[in-house]
């Protein structure tokens, strides 16, 4: 049967966001710009970056997502995520390893409502006509410098976005427990481009991905439109095997 993750999440559990009410209202982010880069990673990290509830993709993949929301209920913000491509049972998903966001208010929303392991940092998304740049800086150190190069227009429907699996603490059956929250964002795309992905700076330890680095470029896309973070409907117990792990909220 397919490989499963071996990541022991107990060490991350204490610092995982606390989500008191997963049945949160959707959050609509109008006029958002969203950069997505996909890379293959070394197969030595095929299983050690995922908990046992998730299968790795074949080949193992790493996704960099940078979202700029010019308008939201807490004002504008930019969010950068590094995720590991995976399967929850047979469903395509991405395990969120680490995120950074430039707005303290947005950090609070993302942590407490959707379980994002997100830290405040300087995050910049810079769409240009010949490239789309993204950069994350924390205390003066660049953690990520990446880009989509050579954009060409495509149909937004051709971009596939994977729902997040965010590790968080929450109350289950009257006790605190660690769960993966499935965050299946909705994308209404007005305009989209694709191009070549590049990552000139990537600090693995800052993104909680061990020694994994973006090794082999796969694809890059940049889309504008409305992104809606949804009401969470499904959870997964990270310690159980994939077919036993999924729970309804």
């Amino acid at each position: 049967m397919p490989l499963i993750g071996t990541l022991d999440v107990s060490s991350q559990a204490a610092s995982a966001p606390l989500v008191l009410e997963p049945n949160t209202e959707p959050w609509e982010l109008l006029g958002a710009g969203h950069l997505q880069l996909m890379f293959e990673i070394d197969d030595s990290h095929m299983v050690d970056l995922l908990p046992p509830a998730l299968h790795p993709t074949i080949p193992p993949t790493l996704l960099i997502n940078v979202l700029h929301a010019p308008k939201s209920s807490v004002g504008q913000f930019t969010l950068a995520e590094v995720r590991i491509g995976c399967r929850s049972g047979g469903r395509p998903r991405a395990f969120l390893a680490q995120a950074y966001c430039d707005s303290a208010a947005a950090v609070a929303e993302l942590r407490t409502r959707w379980g994002y392991p997100v830290t405040q940092a300087e995050v910049v998304l810079d769409p240009q006509h010949h490239q789309v740049l993204a950069r994350v800086t924390l205390h003066g150190k660049v953690l990520l410098d990446c880009a989509l190069k050579g954009p060409e227009a495509i149909n937004g429907a051709d971009i596939q976005y994977l729902p997040n699996m965010n590790l968080a603490r929450m109350m289950r059956n009257g006790a605190e427990a660690v769960r993966l929250l499935q965050v299946d964002a909705d994308y209404a795309i007005l305009k989209a481009d694709r191009g070549r992905p590049t990552a000139t700076v990537f600090v693995p330890e800052a993104w909680a991905v061990g020694g994994a680095t973006p090794q082999w470029p796969v694809s890059a896309s940049y889309a504008t439109g409305t992104v809606t973070l949804p009401r969470v409907r499904y959870l997964a117990n990270p310690s159980l095997r994939p077919l036993e792990a999924v729970e309804a909220v």
């Binding site: 397919p2 993709t57 074949i58 993949t61 049972g89 495509i154 596939q160 694809s219």
Partner: peptide
């Protein structure tokens, strides 16, 4: 069979293309 197939990375899932 289906479960095995679902583990693979389809071209469409990795690369935006018509």
């Amino acid at each position: 069979f289906n479960y095995m197939a679902e583990q693979l990375l389809a071209a469409r899932q990795a690369y935006p293309t018509r």
